[in-house]
Amino acid sequence: MPFALGARAAARGYGLVVFDQAGSTNIEALASARQGARAPCWFVTTEQTAGRGRRQRPWVAPRGNLASSVLEVLNVAPVVAATLGFAACLAIENALRQVSREAVLRSGGSSALDFAVKWPNDVLAGGRKIVGMLLEAEQVAGGLAVVAGIGTNVVAAPTDTPTPAVSLRDLGVEVSAEDLFSALSESWVEYFGIWNEGRGFADIRRLWLERAAGLGQPVAIRSGHAIIEGIFDTIDEQGCMLVRTAEGRLEPITAGDVHFGSVASKGAV
Rank of each mutant, 00 (worst) to 15 (best):
Q98M: 03
L74Q: 14
L74N: 05
S111I: 07
S68G: 11
V80I: 14
E102F: 00
E93C: 14
A103E: 09
A103Y: 02
A39G: 10
L66A: 09
Q98K: 13
A95M: 06
L105I: 13
Q48T: 08
T49V: 11
W42G: 02
A87P: 10
V104G: 02
G85F: 02
A61L: 10
S110Q: 12
R54L: 09
E93W: 02
R97V: 00
N94R: 14
S69W: 01
A95P: 04
V104T: 13
G51S: 06
G109K: 09
F86E: 03
L74E: 13
V79S: 15
A50Y: 02
N94G: 04
E72F: 11
Q48V: 07
A77Q: 12
D114C: 06
S68D: 08
G53F: 01
Q98R: 14
T83W: 01
N75L: 11
R57S: 13
E72D: 14
R38E: 01
A61Q: 13
I92R: 03
C89N: 11
S107L: 09
G53P: 04
C41S: 15
V70M: 10
F86W: 06
A50M: 09
A91Y: 05
Q56C: 04
C89D: 11
P62A: 10
R97S: 05
L105P: 00
C89K: 00
S69D: 07
S107N: 12
R38G: 11
P40N: 11
N94H: 12
R106W: 00
V80F: 01
L90T: 06
G53N: 08
R63T: 13
V99W: 01
E72G: 07
G85N: 14
G108W: 10
V44W: 01
V79D: 15
N94L: 00
V79E: 15
G64R: 04
V70R: 10
S107R: 15
V79N: 10
A39I: 00
A81K: 01
V79A: 15
G109V: 08
N75H: 13
R63W: 00
I92V: 15
E102R: 15
A88G: 15
N75I: 00
V73R: 09
A39C: 03
W59M: 05
R54K: 13
L90F: 03
L84K: 09
V44I: 12
D114W: 00
A95S: 12
R57P: 03
R38H: 05
R106L: 13
L84A: 13
S69I: 06
R55W: 09
R63S: 15
S100L: 01
A61M: 14
R97Q: 11
W42I: 02
T49Q: 09
L90Q: 05
L96D: 03
Q56Y: 01
C41R: 14
A112T: 07
T83F: 02
L66H: 08
V79R: 15
F86C: 08
A39V: 04
G51D: 05
C89V: 09
V60I: 15
G85A: 13
V76D: 06
L66N: 07
W42N: 02
A39Y: 00
S68L: 13
G64Y: 04
G85V: 08
P40V: 08
A61G: 12
V70A: 11
